[in-house]
Design a protein around this nucleic acid. Sequence first.
DNA 1: TTACCGTATTGATGACTGTCAATCTAAGTG
DNA 2: CACTTAGATTGACAGTCATCAATACGGTAA
Lengths: 120, 120
Amino acid sequence: MSTIQLLPLTDVSVECCTPLDSDTLSVEDADLLSSRLKAVADPARLRLVSLVAAHANAEACVCDLTEPLGLSQGTVSHHLKILVEAGIFAREKRGTWAYYSLIPGALGSLSAALLVVGEK
Amino acid sequence: MSTIQLLPLTDVSVECCTPLDSDTLSVEDADLLSSRLKAVADPARLRLVSLVAAHANAEACVCDLTEPLGLSQGTVSHHLKILVEAGIFAREKRGTWAYYSLIPGALGSLSAALLVVGEK
DNA sequence: TTACCGTATTGATGACTGTCAATCTAAGTG
DNA sequence: CACTTAGATTGACAGTCATCAATACGGTAA
């Protein structure tokens, strides 16, 4: 049997979609990373992260956060949802209260991903 | 003369503005950090950082970046200005061309600042 | 000087976002 | 059951943003 060269073909397809620079950020990766960064690039949400991290047991309910943030309950709930959807906060409902906590390593991986963008 | 107690007064004022948690992100720091993160939380600007970093000599002019980004020249110029104002890119004009380059350590300090927010 | 080229800026537009007030849902409590 | 309380959701509004087309600016070359 003749052994068909498969690897060169896949290489060509890779070259096709990355024309000039070898290892540059793809559009998909850029969209993904930017959406995660957007979740954190807001003063209210940065303070939420800081408040929750500084809180006892590293978790807090909405009622703990509304007053120090100076925003309405609905707005705080909105920001918390964005942080949960970005994979930064975890939400656990116990009784009437909803407790939010930092997902371990989430900020670290985001911080690391940002750093990698600047490395060729 | 009666010695007036000044220190207790200032202590009270400090307690007044930091009611519960001790070392939480201030509103000013949150605004500052979020504005730097906003500069980077955009797909086009993330790709700009990646493209410049991967470019020869780690610098590039606008004409090098317009085509791989798929955006108009004016839009690319606009994004580059935002990155310069955020302290991430440096701009050097040589002749007709404007060369942009990553400021060393800029992404690193931003990445580190983001990480610190999550540490109590 | 005029002409050209690379870049910056302006104006307009459509999309997105942060915020609040109001409402709705759900879980406890009388 | 009705009532209260915590949180989520909705609708509306103002502000911001990404984008393009067009124009202005600033060197360089003829």
